[in-house]
Design a protein around this nucleic acid. Structure first.
Lengths: 134, 134
DNA sequence: ATATAATATTGTAATCATTACAAATTTACA
DNA sequence: TGTAAATTTGTAATGATTACAATATTATAT
C-alpha cells in the first residue's frame, strides 16, 4: 500500500489526509512495534521537525476515530498504538517490554460474552516472557 | 471469610496483616466493583481518617506482590483493582464505566499462545454497552 | 481566482494519576 | 526493654495526556 492508497483510505473514513496524519499512519503501518505517542514523536521528529507531541496525539486520535488505528492498554503507564484495527491478541514481555501480535480465531470469544452485553471491541492480553528473554 | 481469615491469608503470603492492608483487602473482597485507588480512598476515608492516598497505593501494591489482588488495565486513564486474582474476564461499559466479571473456561486461550512465549497472566477485555445502558 | 468559513497544527500551560521521598510511627526480635 | 526493620503518611515530584488559543492550512461559495 503506497501513500496515495493510505490517503484515499483516510478520505474514505471521513478525515482529511494531512501530511501529519499520513506520516503517523504510515509509521504505524510500517513499524508493527506498537509504539507509544512519544516513540512516534521521537521517530518522526528528525524528518518532520515541525511536529509537536500534541500533533501526534491529535493525529492518533483522528485515526482512531476513523477506525484505522487502535490503542493497546496492556501497559499501565503508557498507551501503545496499533495500525491494525482488526481483532488480534497482544503479548507483552515483562522483561524487554516489547509487544507482539498473535492471531485470534473468529468467534472464539463469542460464547463468553455475558447475557445482555453488547461488545464493541475485544482484547486478549498475555503478559510473560518472550522467547529472547527466557 | 472473616477478618482473621484474611489476616491469616496475608501472613501466609508473606506480608504483614496491617490494619490498612486488611481494610483495603476487605474492601476489595466485599465490593466487587473494581474500584480505582481513589475510589478505595474515598470509601475508606470516613472510617479511617488517618489513611492517605499513598497508603492505598502502598497497600494495593503489597497485596498485588502477594498475589492476592490484581490490577485491571482496561481503562486507559485509571487503574482498577480486583480482589480476585484468579483468571477471569472483564467487561467495561463505555456508557456508565462499570466493570463486570465473566467466567473464563480453563485452557480456552492456551492454543493462542505464540511459540516460545511464557504466559504469566492473561486478560480478556470486552468493551461495549451493558444491559442497563443499551 | 478570492474571500470566508471550517478544520488542523502547534507550543505552552494545566491536569491528574501515580511515584518518590523522608519523617514519624509501629512492629518484630534480640 | 531496646534496637533494627518495616510501615504509614503527608508533601513534593514525575510524566503522560489534555486543554487552550494563536497560527496556519484547506475547502467551499461567490
Amino acid at each position: 500500500m503506497n501513500l496515495s492508497d493510505q490517503a484515499r483510505r483516510l478520505q474514505e473514513r471521513g478525515i482529511r489526509p494531512t501530511p501529519q496524519r499520513l506520516a503517523v499512519y504510515d509509521y504505524l503501518l510500517t513499524h508493527r512495534t506498537h509504539p507509544t505517542a512519544d516513540a512516534i514523536f521521537e521517530a518522526l521528529s528528525p524528518q518532520y521537525p515541525s511536529f509537536s507531541r500534541t500533533t501526534i496525539y491529535n493525529s492518533v486520535k483522528a485515526l482512531m476515530d476513523a477506525g484505522l488505528v487502535r490503542v493497546v492498554t496492556i501497559d499501565p503507564s503508557e498507551q501503545h498504538f496499533d495500525g491494525d484495527p482488526l481483532d488480534h491478541g497482544h503479548c507483552r514481555c515483562e522483561q524487554c517490554g516489547r509487544l507482539f501480535d498473535f492471531e485470534m480465531p473468529d468467534g472464539l470469544l463469542a460464547p463468553l460474552i455475558p447475557e445482555g452485553f453488547t461488545v464493541n471491541r475485544q482484547d486478549i492480553f498475555f503478559s510473560g516472557l518472550c522467547q529472547d528473554c527466557r
